[in-house]
Design a binder for these strands. Structure first.
Lengths: 337, 337
DNA sequence: TTGAAAGCGCTAACAC
DNA sequence: GTGTTAGCGCTTTCAA
């Protein structure tokens, strides 16, 4: 049987309130502090979180709902967040909804039953309907990487400037004289996909060039997807001289497809990839790529949630935080001029 | 303010005990059942898990401690486990310890404070010291993919037959006439690395051939690691005619390294990879590889934990479950005879 | 089958 | 600064 505060009270001769205050940072006479500390050690006392939660209505737990775990961008963000939140004594319950809106909704409901204090979500559902139970309970919500217009003002979000990222990359290629640029995107309909497509089109518009429709390929953010779409681009009668790939897994798939087709980079084809600089940096050719601030994203999300969690205001100070990306110049782009 | 059982009692005129029994599967008169169900709907009643936990001393939460999240084998197992556990109403708290024994120990302590009902661990610490707090509290523990000899009998574990897996793959290459087989392993000292090395050596012993030391390379189970080690093997004066790579990420790295060196598979070099058949299967050449039953592992772990969780026995029925692997024949191995 | 009542271990209002 | 006390919302004897 674990020791309780009552045991400490008995052992020290103090009242429960004093002991509770000791644990919650109140003023306690040094002499009594010591008394309590000794008793805690002797009894190997650990506060019962259940009782505390019952009283405070707080679980010191946050829920994280994501579309899938097998994606380096997502896992790297979770790793960072979890680290920070755990340091603040928050447990992280992860729910993988497998890019299925029904499962996503179930996950939110499940987390409400578990009474999480806050919610982090990279949404699959584009309407935001699934978040209603959390909104109703008034707990803070932070969206990651994808906005939900319908919920603007009611929630916080941390995103990157995808339009700018894509525009920069495309412009870089156009400036190097590439006019036929393949674009490998994620799932159609997803926030980041739309934004990255937008940036690509913007850059083309700037240069007064009409992009070719068949160069724009929607895929699914997986290695296989990137591999397949690159193969398709290579099978075109008019082929792109450069390709911009919009996430890490698809970039890997593209590299493998190019290697298999004996296209050498950048002589035969130029390429701009996405994310995880450390790894691509180690390889030849040193890939030019769009680098998202993955650590900063995780950090921002965790800190924003902690901020909302520590507020007692009637309406929380929600904010949309937009982080910018960097274009890392390697030598995978050939200048055609 | 959320509704409580008291509200239901007031609304239905029933006693608290009856209502509690209703929720816990006891016998309640149909008439009263209906009464309660109506009240639950009307009041949108959701049981307060805090109060329940305080009384039952159970959190319906399990902790998962893993070395890193950025690894497809680990995340695929977590996805499967989380799915099953959540269906049984258990929340999964994930702690990434970044392959750091100190962090791993902290994670276990943290989870004990959170009063998880059970623990799943892919251990970084090879002594098992870090699990002591959980062992002391007598909660069930299931190890994944790695055994801890010191704890045998006190815990359950789900592992694959790594010696056999590695032996089969190496034997396959030897039978095809390869005598110079490169072996790319994970971190030295880790359970799976040792076992996979053992299998390789066993196969060589069977064939009465002495393996060359310089063909055995310890790496770190990452893409970069596989890439680097393959480059090293290719730089040897006496080069292997085949290579066996012992996880998914390193296999990817190896493929990229081979492509970059313009070695074609299997004409210039044969290769046996590891894991994630679906993806490698889509690529040419169809890779020969060791397929671990990833889904079955996750399923076994979750079910074993659920089994232990539902037991009220004084000493739990711990067991070591060993799953076998399959050698999937593709066409990445050339027959030299 | 049902109800009354005691507590699980903590927090916090209140009185001292 | 400290002690007393009343709950938080459940589960679970025990008696009816």
């Amino acid at each position: 049987m674990a020791a309780t505060m009552k045991d400490i009270a008995r052992m020290t001769g103090l009242g429960l309130a004093t002991i509770s205050k000791y644990f919650n940072g109140g003023n306690v006479r040094p002499k009594n502090r010591k008394l309590i500390e000794d008793a805690v050690k002797a009894l190997r006392f650990v506060p019962n979180e259940f009782a505390r939660s019952l009283k405070t209505r707080l679980s010191r737990t946050v829920g994280v709902v994501i579309p899938e775990l097998g994606n380096q961008f997502i896992t790297s963000i979770i790793t960072t967040m979890e680290d920070i939140l755990r340091k603040h004594d928050y447990a992280v319950i992860v729910c993988d909804c497998r890019t299925d809106p029904r499962r996503e909704k179930e996950a939110v409901t499940f987390l409400m039953h578990k009474r999480v204090d806050g919610l982090i979500n990279m949404p699959t559902d584009t309407t935001g309907e699934h978040l209603k139970p959390a909104l109703d309970r008034g707990i803070p919500i932070v969206l990651v990487d994808r906005m939900l217009k319908a919920l603007s003002g009611k929630i916080s979000a941390v995103v990157v400037d995808n339009v700018d990222a894509s525009e920069k990359a495309t412009r870089y290629l156009l400036e190097a004289g590439h006019e036929k640029i393949g674009l490998i995107l994620g799932n159609e309909g997803i926030y980041t996909t739309q934004k990255r497509r937008e940036g690509y089109l913007n850059a083309y518009a700037e240069f007064n060039i009409k992009p070719r429709k068949e160069f724009i390929r929607f895929s699914d953010y997986t290695l296989e997807g990137g591999y397949t779409k690159m193969k398709e681009l290579l099978a075109l009668s008019i082929q792109p001289t450069a390709v911009f790939v919009t996430n890490y897994e698809m970039t890997l798939g593209t590299i493998i497809a190019l290697n298999e087709a004996f296209r050498s980079v950048p002589d035969d084809i130029s390429i701009i990839g996405f994310d995880k600089l450390d790894m691509f940096g180690a390889m030849y050719p040193n890939l030019t790529l769009v680098k998202q601030p993955q650590n900063a994203i995780g950090e921002c999300v965790a800190k924003q949630l902690l901020r909302l969690l520590s507020q007692t205001l009637p309406d929380p100070l929600n904010q949309i935080i937009t982080l910018s990306t960097q274009l890392h110049e390697g030598n995978s782009v050939k200048c055609l001029k």
